[in-house]
Each structure stands twice: as structure tokens, then as C-alpha cells.
Amino acid sequence: MEVTLLGTGDTTGTPTVGCDCDTCAAARERGVERTRFSVHVRNERTDETLLVDLSPDFRQQFLREDLSVPDAAVVTHIHFDHLHGAGNVFRLTRSLPVHAAAEVDPTTGESVAETVARQYDYLDAIEVHDQEPLEPFTAAGLNCRLVPVDHPPLVCYGLAVEDPETGAKLSISGDTTYDVPEDSRDVLADPDLLVADGIVHAEFCERHPRGGQHHDADGVPRTFGTKHMTVDGARALAEDLNADRFRAVHVSHFVPADRAFEDPFAVDGERYRL
């Protein structure tokens, strides 16, 4: 299984449009980017490919990495930076199976699968397949399971992807606080690689109107505000899940420039073979 981190940034990306902060300046100087979130997975046995989330930066990401249109996709939730690249498949393929959760969101009154189908009903190529959370399904020849996480006010899901023959495993936390349910943690556990939401360092919680949550024994917040993990929380989740490797994604430009490109913060284009 070959995993490429296509987009490792938050909603605005890094560099952020119109921003002259030290972190955005450093990204420009280094020639690196953190575009909006997306992960590409290639099944090396079958040469099929799976795209996790349809970033609005789809075209740029696929041209940059010299990739073909994926054979299947998964949508974790309906926020702009994870879904609204779907229109990029227009005229590029006749068929793109898109897997999404069937659980009805009390906030929207419809499931993620239903929202994708409704918003992109004009695209004949998109074939939405609704999946029950925690139940296995197959995409691109790989075993997958969507797992509920905590990203209020909308339902949101992490994803476990496993090669049924080699046992290689990728876990993606999804956009979430540290409060990932235990049954979801059980599915995500023991990955060869964990790709986890880690938007800023814990000390930045002091600048958030709602501060931080889910503090560890030393008082370090593992959740930034109410929707995302701090990188400290993402690291703690990696330890909880016994991950062999861990990369923090959904990274914001608020991470100080002198630490923004250090481990474990990922940048676009990182590639891993599991």
C-alpha cells in the first residue's frame, strides 16, 4: 500500500491567501505547501487507487503528483475543504464510486452520503455508496471502515484502510477532538501509519475563545477549542492507538514558523509505503 499525503493543511491552507505571517513566508521560501486535506492510497497489488476526501485543491494536487483519476473515493464529512473538490471529476471519468456514511446527521437531517448525492446530482460520474459506520466495505480492493469521531456540530468520521492480503494498515483520524469514541479507537488501533488532525500546538489554545479541552495529567489540552486536536492531542492519540508512524495534518498557518516544519507536522507530497 502506497500512501501519498496530497493535502495537509486546514481550511485556508499554507501559505494562506493574502497572509504575510512568518509561517506563510517560510513556506514560500521553502517551496512547500499545505493545501486542503486529501490522502491518496494506491493498492500496489491491484494498481487500484482510493482517494480519501475530495479537496477543493484536487486539480492542483493531482497534477503536482502526476496522478490519474482515482478508482474510488471516501468522504469523511461535508465541510468545504473535504468535499467540494468533487466537481473536478467532471469530464475526467465516467465513473467514480464515492463511499460515505449512511448515518443521519441530526443537524442537517440527512447523512453524509445523502448530502454528497444531493449536492452533486448533476455529475453522472459520481456514484454514491452509503456505508454504515463501523461496518466493513471494500474500495479499490482494500478493506475500509468509517468510524465516528467528534467534530461538532456535524457528524464526521475517521477511516481505517487495510490490505486484506498483506495486513498493511492506514488509519486516518478525520477532523476531530481528542474525544474519539472507544469503539472507533478499536477499529483505528495498531496502524502502520496514523494520519491525524493536529491543527496547532497546545499553548495556542490560550488564543481560542473557548480555550482547550481534554487536558492530560500535566494539564496540556489535547483539543483546540471544540473541533480539532492540538498536535499534542494527535501525538497522544498516536500513542493510544499504538501507531508505528504518525503524521499531523490539517495543520494551520498559526503554528510558529520555527516549529511549523518540524516533526510530526506533515507537508504536501509526503509518500509512505506500508
Rank of each mutant, 00 (worst) to 15 (best):
E114R: 02
E114H: 01
T115I: 00
A117F: 01
D121Y: 00
Y122P: 01
Y122N: 02
L123A: 03
D124L: 04
A125K: 03
A125G: 00
I126Q: 04
E127M: 01
V128L: 06
V128A: 02
H129D: 08
D130F: 00
Q131F: 06
Q131N: 06
E132K: 06
P133M: 04
L134G: 00
E135M: 02
A140R: 07
G141A: 14
N143E: 15
R145Q: 15
L146P: 01
V147G: 03
P148C: 00
D150P: 00
L154F: 15
Y157R: 11
V161C: 02
E162A: 10
D163S: 03
D163V: 02
G167P: 08
G167M: 11
A168M: 04
A168H: 04
A168P: 02
A168K: 08
I172H: 03
S173E: 11
G174S: 04
G174K: 03
T177S: 07
T177Y: 12
T177R: 13
Y178Q: 02
Y178K: 04
V180S: 10
V180C: 01
E182N: 03
E182H: 07
D183V: 05
S184K: 07
S184H: 01
R185A: 07
R185H: 09
V187E: 01
V187Y: 05
A189T: 03
D190A: 12
D192S: 13
D192P: 14
L193E: 10
L193W: 05
V195H: 06
A196H: 08
I199Q: 09
A202D: 14
F204W: 12
C205P: 00
C205S: 15
P209A: 14
P209D: 09
R210M: 13
G211C: 13
G211V: 10
G212V: 12
G212S: 11
H214K: 06
H214V: 11
D216I: 12
A217N: 08
A217R: 15
D218H: 14
D218K: 06
G219F: 11
G219W: 15
V220G: 08
V220T: 15
R222T: 09
